[in-house]
Design a binder for these strands. Structure first.
Lengths: 110, 110
DNA sequence: AAAATTAATCGTATATTTGCGATAATTATG
DNA sequence: CATAATTATCGCAAATATACGATTAATTTT
């Protein structure tokens, strides 16, 4: 990518917000969260039945949501039950509230 | 990408939320919005002076924010003044409020 | 009209994301 | 112990994203 060699440092808030935003930036992952909201919890297989994607693909999206900290998996062999990670979900909620409560000035200048 | 040949259709809300999330998923773009909040408005050059990235790179990030609808550019030759797109910003705010107000059940099942 | 200023766009290189099938891993069932 | 069920992971291919320098475009200044 021909990056600048020194890694740029951003504030923790900025990094975390970007990280959560990235996890939420794919329609399938939003659909997974929606399903998780309807069902409270679900197995990987439930999602595979509902979403028109390969099992491995859905597994990968679940991994990304998990890596971002938004969901957690409970191993109940041979299945895995997923649900929201309440604490981190609330953290994300607060970060986006902060983001959107930024004041851009009531008088638009454009 | 060896995609599934039929394009999957998601709800407008899901598509829009994902689109906004993607625009917000890069630290530099969040930094641009922050600067825009501090200054109300700014020229491309102001950002180039503040952020440790090439002019072309910043221009590209501005384009992405603009394509997502989050900012708007006002041409004042030879410069361009950017500021938030209030209407779409509020729309994004509402979408994320909806997203985070999803109820995942008070009784955690994991 | 020539030079300077400012920002967008082009071309290119590299990294990351997305998606799939195949395979492996784990545990329950027969 | 073999088989079935379920999910994660691997390996690959293709699409996107990211970053940069060079160039172009538009307008002002000299």
């Amino acid at each position: 990518m021909k990056r600048t060699n020194q890694h740029i440092v951003y504030s923790d808030v900025t990094e975390q917000t970007a990280r959560f935003a990235k996890a939420l930036s794919h329609p399938v992952r939003l659909a997974i969260l929606k399903h998780l909201s309807n069902q409270s919890c679900c197995f990987t297989g439930d999602l595979v039945a509902v979403l028109p994607m390969a099992q491995s693909t859905i597994s990968q999206h679940l991994k990304e949501l998990k890596d971002a900290g938004l969901i957690q998996g409970d191993i109940l062999p041979p299945r895995v039950k997923y649900c929201i990670h309440q604490e981190n979900w609330n953290k994300a909620k607060r970060l986006f509230e902060t983001l959107f409560n930024q004041d851009f000035g009531s008088i638009s200048c454009c």
